[in-house]
Amino acid sequence: MSTLNIVNKSPFEKRSLDQCLSRIGSDDAVLLIEDAVVVAMAGTRYESDLKSAAAAKKLYVLTPDVEARGLADKPVVEGFTQVDYKGFVALVTEHDRVHSWL
């Protein structure tokens, strides 16, 4: 039984990503959307935390939100998979439930 966890807040402002990661299992996935996408870019102070998280769980980032913020020119953190809106829908259907960490 797996859950798609959606996080939409930047960890520089809110702790929801950390709160999410501390409570999910290796079969669960995390999709970063909206302001949360900033942390999927290499070079932030959270990069090493996310690298180790990516080793244990599936991490995704929504490309349209990356592009909207002008961050598409930066490499993503190792272990992240980029998805478009179709990929977002596919993730929703592949998991048993969705948990949006508001």
């Binding site: 039984m1 797996s2 859950t3 409570r23 048993d96 439930r97 948990h99 949006s100 508001l102």
Partner: peptide, 18 residues
Amino acid sequence: KRGEVKDLIDQQDVVLSF
């Protein structure tokens, strides 16, 4: 416990977060 939260969520059909 924090480690049991996943098991609890795994039993659910719908998760609503506030």
